[in-house]
Structure formats: C-alpha cells, structure tokens
Design a protein around this nucleic acid. Structure first.
Lengths: 350, 350
DNA sequence: AGCCTCACCTATATCGTTACAAATTTTCCG
DNA sequence: CGGAAAATTTGTAACGATATAGGTGAGGCT
C-alpha cells in the first residue's frame, strides 16, 4: 500500500476533445461562453471588459453565464496577448529577513493586492550576485508589472535603472538621486533624534548608536538625527565600530559586552533593530547592569516582540505592515497609469 | 520639476515592427534565433530542448546564439502552450506569520527553487474565507504546478482534495487520513516528550504546556508527547485552558500571569513557540519569580532570537529553513513525475 | 536505376486572449 | 421608403512557444 506511486504525466486527462462541445468539467474559456450565448468570442471578451460598444443587456447576459460556469480568464493567455503579467515582484534581501521584517511587509503587500488580479512573487536576491541583477532581470524579461524592493542606497542603481526605463516600482527608503522617484520611507532621522532626546532626558550622558551598513541611505538618516540631537544637547556620543545592524547577533552582543565592560562605557543605547536591542539587553544583563538605571535603551520596534520582553525597554514603533500596504497601493496606482510623483512619496512619521 | 508625471500607457514602446527584422534591443524570441541561424522556429525550439533528433552541432550553434543575444523563453507563451506554470504557491496562514515562522520557510523554499525555472508566489489565505478556498482555486485554475501549505489538520480537507485530484503538493505537518501523502513535519511528539523530561529532571513537579489550537494535528502530537512523559514520571501537569499558541501574546501573558499568581502554580512550562515562551518569561519576571529556580521553561526555538534573551532559557530547536528547503526539493521532485510516496515523507527529528 | 531507411529538419495547428478592421443590424430622418 | 448614421457584433490575426505530423536528402541495398 505504501508502495503506490504518486502522480504521473497525464496532464489534461484526455478530455473528449472530439467535438467543440467541451465536457462540463473542462476548464471554461471564452469559447465556452461564446457557445453558450451564441455570441462570438470577441464579443464575449469585450463584454466582460465592459466595453461600451457592447449592448448593456448583452454584457449582463455574458457576465451571468460567466459567473454560472465559473469562468476565469487564463492568465497565461492574457499575459501573452497583452504583455501584462499581473505580477508584483518583491525582491528580498536575505539580510532583512531576520525577525519578520520581511513578513510584515509581505502581510501589508498581500493586503494591498487583495481583491486585485495581482499576485505577489518573492524574488530572492542571493548574496553572490550583484544587487541589481534580479531587478534588471525582472524588468528586461518583463517578469512583473511592478517591483518592490527595500534598503535603498544614496545612489541606488536599481532606482536609476528603473527610472530610466520608466518601469513601475516602489522602494522602501529614499535615495540622494537628483531625480524624484517613488518611495515609502520611515523617518529614521526623527527616530534617532527622538531616541537620543529621550535618553538624554532620562539622564544618559554618553550615547551609543548602532547603525546599519554605511551604504544604505537610512544609515545616514539615523546618524544625522543622532548627531543633531547629541550636538544640541552637548552630550558624549559614539557610533558602534565594526558592527552594524546587519552583523550576526552574536557579534553585536560580543561587541556590546566588550564595550560595556570598559570604564567609559556608554549609558544610553539606540538600536535601529530588534535583534541589536536584545543584544544590548543581553550584554547589560551579563554585566549585571540594570536597565533604566545603569544603562538606558531606546529600540526601534517593528513587531509585538518587545511587549513581552522584560525588563521593559523603551521603544519607538515603525509600522512595516503599513509600509507594505502603502507600497502595494502606490505601486498599483503607478501601474495603472501616470501619477504625479509627489503622490508616490510617503514618509512615515515617528 | 516635481510636477513631472511618471509612466504612461506606452507599453511596448512603438518598436519598429515594420519588417520581421527585429531591432537589436527588442526582446529576442525563438523567431529571432531562427532568423539568425537560418533554421526554422521549431528546430530552434527543439534544439534548445536538447532533443536528440537535432544534430549535435546544430544544438550547440543554437545554444550559442541564444546565449549571445540573451534569449530567455517567454513564460507566458510556454505556460499557455504547455499548461505548466513554473509557479509554486505558498499558501500562508496569517497566524503563522508571527516572528518569522513564514520567513524561515520562504528562505528555505527560495533556496530550493534557486536555479530552477520556478517562481515562488505567496498566496495569503484571509481568515474570512474557508481554509480550503485558496487551495481549490490554485488547483482548479492551474495557478501553480505545486502547492505548499502548513499547519495540517487530522482530516485535512486540503490534503484530501489535492490527493483526490493527484495534484502535486507538500504540506508542513501530518494528517490522520488513511491515504499516505507527502509531508515534511517536525517531531513534535519528541519535542514535548523531551521538554517534559528535561523539566522533570531539573526538578519541576507540576508542568504546564501551551498547545496550538486543537484542530491542528501537531497539537495532538505535542499533547501526546507531553502526556506520555508526565505519566511515565508521575508528575502533576496541566494544559493551558483558554489560550493557545495562536492567541494574542498579551492574552497568553495575562493567562500565565494569573496562573502563576495562584498557589498551585506550575513550576515547569513548555512552549511550542517563541512568543509564548517570552510570555512565560515576562510573567515570571512580573511575579519576581526566578527562572531555573522558581519556574523552569523549555521553549521551541525557530530563530536565533533566544540566543539574545536573558536569562537564558532552555530551548529545543526546530529548523524551519531546512523544512522549507526540504519541502521545495520534494515538491519539485514530485512535479517532475511519479515518486514513491515514502520518498516524499520526512520527519525532522528533535 | 529504383526503393528504402535513417538522420535531420520544417510546416501547421494550437493554447486563450485581445487589437484591429470590417461587417452586420438597428435607428433615425427627410 | 431609401439611405446615411449610429449601434452592435463579428472575423482575422496576432502574442511566443510547442506537439504532431510531415518533408527532405544522403546513403545503403538489390
């Protein structure tokens, strides 16, 4: 019994394709509807597209029949004919997949795509190929009608390429390119600024911030917000050296543990990510330093995680699901036709 | 400047389609190669498919030209003609997307699909529609060549439907159906059993386990492993009432906080998920109970998260990335043709 | 030479849809 | 009622790939 085989080639199980009369169970096509209504295939197509040239009652009749037999247009045929793919590609950077960063966005994106004809395809970008490759590939081979990607760089090649080719896209993060382009971003400047102010207000006198890798635009935003705050307040500060938010969590913790063991240890920590915030807490714990007394922490929260973490850390929330939802909506709008650029730019406030 | 509009309809920017001679930048098709080599389109197609009827040097020549001009087959055309979609659908239950459960699997799946012609499409299943709907839809409308889904139930309808229709799929979790079917599962029995044994060995005398919702098969496995261990050891035990691993994390914590405040509070906790494990730790903390002394905890770990959590909790690892990778590989194998069922069943050991 | 086989290549039809141009019917008006 | 205009509907040809059946020529055999 357990030796039975699964499957077989037998695609399209030999339905009687003798006459045009397709079996009741065969997949309904426009032709099926045409036969049922006595109309031409073209007419059916136009009727379903709600073309004004088709008489209203014809349209309704066709619509009814289509609904009755459960007609759904064949995506491959539509795609072949129109060039539209009905696909949105999310290009995922493996680094950002830690702790649900990607998941939140995917949730938002699927919510935006809900009820539309669009599908979400995950296109990973493997670290051994240049960042721009998947984007170029999707664009050149029309694998999707629109692209979503994240973690922009100041002179982001992907943005350049897509803008030059007028290809619909949206990215999470801004650039410093001369050309305006669509984006959804979080106010990381504001985050770092407010985080620093909070720490200082709570009594911290030497702040440390862990930044993302320098190549990302949001690293600059974070630094800038941080620097502005510490300069305004005239407190000591430093920027983590040798580790970034992308570093392995153990490396971050080791770094922090070392740094917290030194006499001039910072007493206020700003983390742009949840993993690094946990590393701060772990290091403090391992040094028997008390949170909110010996060391203070402000973390960026992107999930419900920190509600369960003790001792409670101060956090500032970034809503990535909302970001995903926005990106999806804006991208669909853009795909639908020309849109003034400022309607495609959203900055989520702190 | 900021008023410039983006985009426009202009799909297929009016390339000179006057002669058959397609412009150098136009998308190469089989026809392009046919013209370049002086062969017929059919021959080119067969040559690229490495058909033995085509002379070896012709095949090589075609291959060379194809590579030179960067030919890639049009997926829509292939799909229309062959019925094959080159798509794998991952049906995502929103509940499981907490804390990277989905992300890990997606990582594994994309790794399995790497280098193949397959794309990964995320198909969310919204909670207001029956669980089986997306699966039925994908199958009936041939939206994918194979389906991946998770969190099976003992009499899982999806499994039944797909098996009856001989449609390639793989699921994360087993069922109690009479028919053998493909799956990748984790030994949750073993997990709960070992977790209980560990707690007892460490001195716990009253164990509490938080289970997933009853309808999932793995809830039964966990309970069974748990019950076997506590009966073997003859210790007190209870199963969390009113909350499951799917409950809101705050609800889990509230429940645990209440329970820990009662005189007969359990002193050993087993959590099948990271969120609930954090809730245990938070509740203990809020009651000023010391971990590994007043209360003990064994959690299932599916990410690097717990390496950063203090105090260190005991965990047992479940590798979801590996599960995703396995599922991808098995599904591809199954799509390729008949495979003995036992080659499509994997149980990840504790 | 006549016929056959083998190795290789090609023509045609088709998947389901839609753009385009053309044909048909209906409506309207003098 | 004739005829033009408007309102509908229809036929044909693609989109790019592949399955199927058919064709061509070189060489061997009698």
């Amino acid at each position: 019994m357990s030796l039975e085989d699964l499957g077989g080639k037998g695609r399209r199980a030999k339905t009687e394709r003798v006459t045009g009369k397709s079996g009741a169970d065969a997949k309904p096509t426009l032709k099926t509807i045409a036969e049922l209504t006595g109309l031409a295939v073209t007419t059916v197509s136009r009727a379903l597209a709600d073309a004004p040239q088709i008489a209203l009652d014809t349209r309704q009749r066709v619509r009814q029949v289509a609904a009755d037999i459960g007609y759904l247009p064949d995506r491959a045929a539509q795609r072949l004919r129109t060039g539209r793919t009905n696909v949105i590609s999310l290009v995922l950077d493996p680094h950002e997949e830690i702790l649900g960063y990607a998941t939140s966005m995917i949730n938002g994106l699927t919510e935006a795509l809900r009820g539309t004809a669009y599908h979400l395809v995950i296109t990973p970008h493997f670290s051994d190929t240049p960042q721009i490759e998947p984007v170029r590939h999707i664009m050149r081979n029309r694998m999707a009608d629109g692209i979503v990607f994240t973690r922009t760089e100041p002179m982001d090649e992907r943005v350049k390429l897509l803008m030059e080719n007028n290809f619909p896209f949206i990215c999470h993060g801004r650039t410093e390119l001369a050309t305006a382009h669509p984006y959804v971003d979080y106010d990381n400047y504001g985050f770092a600024y407010q985080a620093a102010k909070k720490l200082i207000a709570a009594g911290a006198s030497k702040l440390l911030i862990i930044l993302p890798p320098e190549r990302f635009t949001f690293a600059h935003h974070l630094r800038h917000g941080f620097m502005t705050a510490v300069r305004e307040e005239g407190v000591g500060f430093e920027i983590a050296k040798g580790v970034t938010l992308d570093s392995k969590s153990d490396d971050i913790r080791d770094y922090l543990f070392r740094r917290m063991g030194e006499p001039d240890r910072p007493d206020g920590y700003i983390c742009g990510g949840e993993v690094s915030a946990l590393a701060v807490m772990a290091s403090a714990y391992d040094h028997k330093l008390e949170l909110d007394k010996d060391v203070r922490l402000v973390a960026k929260q992107t999930s419900g995680l920190f509600d369960q973490i003790r001792p409670r850390a101060e956090t500032i929330y970034e809503d990535l699901t909302e970001a995903g939802l926005l990106m999806g909506k804006l991208l669909l709008k853009r795909i639908g036709g020309p849109v003034p650029i400022q309607e495609l730019q959203v900055l989520q406030t702190v």
